[in-house]
Write a protein that binds this DNA or RNA. Structure first.
Lengths: 142, 142
DNA sequence: CCGGTAGTACGGTAAACCTCGTACTACGGT
DNA sequence: ACCGTAGTACGAGGTTTACCGTACTACCGG
């Protein structure tokens, strides 16, 4: 009864993904949906906090200028993959982006319309502000 | 030679505020100017971070709806005075508000025009978003 | 002159945050 | 069937944050 595990796993949890609905989900959710906040659970403070980080702002700008879904790897950040994953999750959990698995990639899209309905003009103003600042300082600055 | 000090001060520094210009400033700056960032040193990330806190957001909303300067004590927050001071400083250092001493009070005002020049529509959008959310949830909510 | 009000500085705590490295899982192509 | 690519979970380190309490300073009014 030697399972296929390369390492000698002591024994405990042979239960793979088990799941139920948000309970287990130990690893990745195959081709399934990821937890996204409903529009009425999106909080301004969380959105602003999500946008207040340079890395995440860069992601949002890239998504906006692309105007379409982008894979995580499509948005290059000067951090490791783990950190990148972290930032994308913060953006998703705050309601700024929507994520979905597509093949081996995870696609990301701005929740533009939903945010517009909740906070009219906010996203546009932030994106414009980011552009303005990028133009003001050298495009490669802070 | 019994000085007025309740405690027995050894003797050393009878020099009161000494100062020079940002060097000493051990305590309060009398009726003087406080350090504010120049418009070109205001960073979007810092502004958003400042606005991403509920307490600070409350301050900004109060200042906006008042349309005029308000003393710190005029803006009631469910925190101690020290914490309040902390939040006002974050707002000032990020460039969101301007502070000045007036008598025993410290007056606070939004740097609306300067922010508008840097990030057109941003402050308005954030304020509108805060109002919208306050209306959506009970005005006494999160 | 004395007390009250307004605000600060300092020190401390507990939580949150950003970052990384390592080890792992899924999907797709050769 | 295997390897590579894309992304995750977990744990840990170091910094920042929000909050408080205490002790202090400045200004105003009686």
């Amino acid at each position: 009864m030697m399972v296929l595990l390369p390492r000698a796993s002591p024994a405990p949890p042979p239960q793979p993904p088990v799941d139920e609905c948000g309970a287990a989900m130990t690893t990745m959710t195959p081709g399934r949906e990821l937890p996204h906040p409903e529009p009425d659970r999106i909080r301004l403070a969380e959105v602003l906090h999500a946008l207040a980080d340079p890395m995440r702002m860069r992601v949002v700008c890239r998504l906006a200028e692309a105007g379409a879904e982008l894979a995580c790897s499509e948005v290059e950040l000067p951090v490791t993959k783990s950190t990148s994953t972290h930032h994308f999750r913060v953006l998703r959990e705050s309601g700024v982006i929507r994520q979905a698995y597509r093949g081996t990639a995870k696609m990301n899209a701005l929740r533009g319309e939903e945010l517009e309905a909740l906070f009219p003009g906010l996203l546009a103003a932030v994106l414009a502000a980011a552009d303005a600042q990028a133009a003001r300082l050298g495009p490669a600055e802070d």
